[in-house]
């Protein structure tokens, strides 16, 4: 187990450097000059431009910029945005919002997804099974922005339960609707994955053994069936937690949630290199940690993995 963890942590290192380098190169090779853009319509003073470029290391070759950035990063410095605000400051304001949104979406997709998956998986071919299949297929087929507008129209415009967009991003109750929209696609996948997994395990030999042991149906389903069926579902849920954080750009935009997605979107538009790289770096770390945790959890759930 110990060597397994160590190996997985060591694997994270090249992935971390690879992804950050990639995003660094992509941001800094974007066409257009962010410093000149700062001056808007006014003509830029070449001396001022040069001094800003020097300040942000933009006059250096790319590899030097990357090394400089990484050097600072390991001292906890995410750099400064072109507006002069530290990137860590910007992230400190936005990440809590996104984390809340993602966690809300996560709880929603997990509870409802598992419930629907079990409902249909245990009663294959029944009315509720067909219903779950059709509904999840619909959710999977509809793009998230369409779903978001439908939700806005129904719950805000028609029913008037909520405001169409979020007024205060730190108010948890206002984040519910965006979270439902954000989590709906994964919910459909969780439900279908659970259904398939239960279907497979229902036919497993050990289930027949459990029945032959004279166990009550509740014990058979909860202890024997679910314990096995949920292994792939939990793997999916774990990686999805990372995806929910990074993938909230569209949802946050539509619902005006002042989270990472919105900040990232604006930063890309204004070619705010340090902000984009900083946020993406943190997202990469979240992804890596999430998948490490999933792998460890996987080993706990499935003893066959443990000593591999």
């Amino acid at each position: 187990m110990g060597s397994y963890v160590l190996r997985r942590v060591l694997q994270m290192i090249p992935v971390f450097f690879g992804t950050t380098l990639l995003i660094f190169v992509m941001v800094y090779t974007l066409p257009g000059d962010p410093v000149t853009a700062l001056f808007g319509e006014k003509a830029a003073d070449p001396a001022v431009v040069a001094s800003i470029k020097h300040k942000y290391f933009l006059d250096q070759p790319l590899w030097k910029q990357y090394l400089h950035y990484m050097g600072n990063l390991f001292q906890g410095d995410f750099g400064t945005s072109f507006t002069g605000r530290p990137v860590s400051d910007i992230m400190a304001g936005a990440f809590p919002v996104t984390i809340r949104l993602a966690l809300l979406a996560f709880v929603f997709e997990m509870i409802l997804g598992l419930a629907l998956g079990m409902l249909s998986g245990l009663r294959r071919g029944s009315v509720q099974d067909t219903l779950v299949l059709v509904l999840t297929l619909m959710v999977i087929s509809i793009p998230v922005f369409v779903l978001a507008y439908i939700a806005q129209t129904v719950f805000a415009t028609n029913l008037g339960w909520v405001t169409p967009t979020v007024q205060d991003s730190y108010d948890l109750s206002q984040l519910v609707l965006p979270a439902v929209v954000l989590g709906s696609l994964s919910l459909a996948y969780v439900a279908r994955l659970t259904r398939t997994s239960i279907g497979e395990n229902l036919r497993a030999d050990y289930m027949r053994t459990a029945v032959a042991k004279g166990l009550p149906r509740r014990t058979i389903v909860l202890r024997h069936l679910l314990r096995n069926s949920l292994i792939p579902v939990i793997t999916f849920l774990g990686t999805d937690l990372g995806a929910l954080m990074g993938g909230a750009i569209v949802t946050e935009g539509i619902f005006n949630v002042q989270g990472i997605g919105n900040v990232l979107y604006r930063a890309i538009n204004t070619k705010e290199g340090p902000t984009v790289v900083g946020i993406v770096t943190v997202l990469v770390i979240i992804y890596l940690v999430a998948s490490l945790l999933v792998d460890l959890l996987y080993a706990v759930l499935d003893p066959r993995i443990r000593y591999a």
Binding site: D205, R208, A212, I231, L301
Partner: peptide, 16 residues
């Protein structure tokens, strides 16, 4: 009680 043919698949893999 019943004894099955293939004990590896007849025993639950995730329970001791």
């Amino acid at each position: 009680a019943m004894i099955f043919q293939d004990a590896l698949s007849a025993l639950n893999p995730v329970l001791s």
